[in-house]
Design a protein around this nucleic acid. Structure first.
Lengths: 309, 309
DNA sequence: CCTATTTAGTTGACATAATCAACTAAATTT
DNA sequence: AAATTTAGTTGATTATGTCAACTAAATAGG
């Protein structure tokens, strides 16, 4: 634990430097750091009240008040009585206020751009992923990272390098964390993936890969089994559940199933996945076979579902 | 790119809050934030000169000077003329200075501990991994993350849940980034791993897993092939090369090979991996066969090495 | 509806934090 | 040995932040 604390401290020192570098540009502007932060927040959150500003930035209301009067004096800000509450104001940047914001914003963007410039695309995606993960762990009640929306998620069917591995990875992670499946299951998935890839013909097989900000968050595959199709490798990252992604992917599955004129479809799952089973049933699958299995490092009952006609 | 900048900003806001939370404890101490930081650095880096302090913490030298005189007045610090340079001082905390440091350090530790407490072990490891990755990307010339040392790396032979997947993952990552191998290679590794696991008997098979701070950074496996053994799945994370880890793992391989009384050993690699080949040769392997292969998404020549007697 | 209490924002007084420039004395360069 | 650079100190000044008192509006409770 002590090693972790030291590590944490070392990271904080390091990141403080990054933040300091980014704050520096404000020093070359006609604004103090506190003024800059308020200007930013004004732009981002307007229309906003002084009270909200103070809370967002954790600043004393007196201090905020003074900075705001300064802005009004410099004609950067308009204060209008809040119609809901005559004690309070609604704050709105004037055109020259917006311009002032733009100037420091550009400078700040430039600084960030210079910082991120040397990174490749994959590194940037990785970075975002790391940042979200860190914040999720440390700042559990903050507003970052935002809950992802279904429309931000791309689903593609082209198989790229890295995809199979990421699929195996996510499967392993999810089933290990949530159902304590172990090494045998991992080998089983690896085997399945290898097999799927060898018989993979894009005409009658398909894999759907759901991505958010370049990071893979869900998979589903359709494997050609002659006249019928097998649904395989269905998994969704736990942070991306409950937003309709599973339903969306199932729809794509059903659509492709129809296009290829398969006469039916089936899948194997286990008794431990009721949420998934409910989704399968919703799309017309019915339980047709049960058998105990030892392929999961613990006793489970495998369920076969077939599409009812 | 704009989305990435926004994301970066959002993370910075979020992390600023975390840092703010951690700095807060200093407010309940007889030290200001700046004093606290200096006290920390004094402890960490002593003996140190005022100039170095200012540079490390990016503080104005006048400001540093004043804080230091304050410390001397409070008998927390001893200033001794620098024997190398009579303009300068060597700073050293007095016993009560150390004590003061200890007090705020404990408080800070407690704060961090409370922050990390809700996380499980795996989450903590993930966190460290994310932090190191982020810092490596953003702070390329800083001292964090430190270059890992061989003696910090544990090598274990017990196969745990997640290991196989991580192995596949690292293989894919390394060979994709460094040699542009693609999906076929991934399927090939997945297949190999599944096969290895099925025939895996710990008596005459072994896998070595190198870990740093709980994060897996290298693999090597020995597969029983009857009278001889096959060396498989040798890979080391690019951030952990050049510190003797590969040599260390090969030694373990050779040792186990002897223990099990195999009469020989062989391995397959490709012409593109000269560093690995040099290592194999160093341990007595010699090139015995070459053949072109299509299993790597691009034309490569596979090389077979056999242990010479 | 009236009164007591709470709340949003302002202001003054004040303390602390941080910056800048001028300065001293030692080190280094030429 | 003179000129220049460097480490550190100090005074002047500005920025940041806190606290409490205050005004005026909103709200709660009878």
């Amino acid at each position: 634990m002590d090693a972790i604390i030291d590590e944490f401290r070392a990271f904080n020192r390091s990141y403080t430097q990054v933040l300091g570098l980014l704050d520096r540009h404000i020093l070359n502007s006609p604004f103090s750091l506190a003024e800059g932060r308020i200007l930013f927040e004004l732009h981002r959150a307007q229309p906003v009240t002084p009270k909200e500003l103070g809370e967002m930035l954790q600043m004393d209301k007196g201090f905020v008040s003074r900075i705001l009067t300064g802005f009004v004096r410099r004609k950067l800000l308009r204060k209008v009585r809040n119609p809901q509450d005559a004690r309070s104001w609604v704050l709105q940047l004037t055109p020259s206020g917006e311009q002032a914001f733009l100037a420091i914003n550009e400078a700040s963007n430039g600084q960030i751009q210079r910082l991120l410039d040397p990174l490749g695309n994959e590194a940037r995606r990785d970075m975002i992923h790391s940042m979200r993960k860190l914040s999720r762990q440390l700042n559990r009640f903050g507003e970052y990272p935002p809950k992802p929306q279904l429309d931000e998620i791309q689903i593609r069917t082209q198989l790229n390098p890295g995809d199979l591995i990421n699929l195996i990875q996510l499967h392993g992670e999810v089933y290990r964390e949530e159902y304590q499946y172990g090494t045998t299951f991992e080998a089983y998935v690896a085997q399945g993936i290898a097999e799927f890839y060898h018989q993979y013909d894009p005409k009658t097989n398909r894999i759907w890969i759901a991505e958010h900000l370049g990071h893979q968050v869900g998979y589903l595959a359709l494997a050609d089994r002659g006249t019928v199709a097998q649904l395989r490798f269905f998994v969704i990252d736990s942070n991306y559940r409950g937003i309709g992604l599973g339903k969306r992917m199932m729809e794509l599955f059903m659509q492709f199933l129809k296009e290829c004129n398969f006469t039916g479809a089936y899948l194997w799952t286990t008794h431990e996945l009721p949420t998934a089973a409910a989704l399968y049933r919703r799309f017309g699958f019915r339980l047709t076979e049960e058998k105990p299995s030892k392929a999961f490092d613990k006793p489970v009952i495998e369920h076969r579902y077939d599409l009812a006609h």
